[in-house]
């Protein structure tokens, strides 16, 4: 299953689910990364990490290690 990590800059996708039940998973969900939400990969920081996404009209930043946990459907 593709994850956010497999996206290219500018791509749009739909969140399907997030691995894990820890505080990070909860924080991701609270920030709007939840099943059915559309997410867009806006860009990368100058050193390649972290990554900027747009979800629910908000821009958020995630590390590429965290993006592996977010499963998507294109």
């Amino acid at each position: 299953m593709p994850t956010l990590k497999t996206l290219n800059v500018g791509d749009q996708a739909t969140v399907s689910h997030i691995d894990g039940a820890d505080a990070i998973a909860m924080r991701l969900m609270e920030m709007g990364l939840f099943e059915g939400e559309s997410i867009r990969f806006v860009g990368k920081a100058p050193l390649g990490d972290p990554l900027e996404f747009e979800i629910c009209g908000c821009k958020i930043s995630l590390r590429s290690s965290e993006t592996e946990r977010v499963h998507i459907t294109s």
Partner: peptide, 9 residues
Amino acid sequence: APFVMELPN
């Protein structure tokens, strides 16, 4: 530690 941060408009 994780890095989930809002980038306000």
